[in-house]
């Protein structure tokens, strides 16, 4: 096992992996009464996800656990990020008074934000 700090750059930043918990990819849509936000959170159990609003921000966090952990399994390639994740998306509206619903559909977490009544 060898390790060398590469002063010439931050290779870990070049690989599309940022600091801190991993961030799931998201799509944001405008709707008639607010926003629709879709998160790529395949393989995450519903009970492991927390969705909350704080001021103008929507914060989705949680943990992804690997299901394939039984005896006789040996990993050869791991690219899917496990463990804790967190994604924070800022909106122009104040979300504290918004109506927030979240559903899982085919591995996608769909969050509806109704800001206008």
């Amino acid at each position: 096992m060898s390790y060398r700090i590469d002063l010439l750059g931050f290779p870990f930043l070049e690989r599309g992996v940022s600091r801190g918990p991993w961030q799931p990819a998201a799509d944001v849509y405008r709707t008639q009464d607010g926003w629709l936000v879709k998160f790529d959170l395949a393989g995450v159990k519903t009970e492991d996800v927390t969705v909350r609003a704080a001021g103008h921000a929507l914060i989705v966090s949680g943990v992804r656990r690997d299901m394939q952990t039984g005896q006789g399994l040996t990993a050869y390639l791991v690219e899917i990020a496990y463990s804790r994740f967190e994604r924070r998306i800022e909106f122009p509206d104040d979300l504290d008074r918004a109506c927030l619903t979240a559903t899982f559909c085919n591995g996608m977490l769909v969050v509806r934000l109704r800001t206008r009544s």
Binding site: Y3, R65, S83
Partner: peptide, 28 residues
């Protein structure tokens, strides 16, 4: 904490430790 580090694991005990971690749900 929070920082990433690439590692090349070759020692037998270390490979076993990494395998054990990979077998965990959170790979900790």
């Amino acid at each position: 904490p929070d920082l990433l580090m690439p590692l090349s694991v070759g020692r037998e005990a270390s490979v076993a430790a990494a395998n054990a971690a990979l077998a965990g749900e959170e790979k900790t």
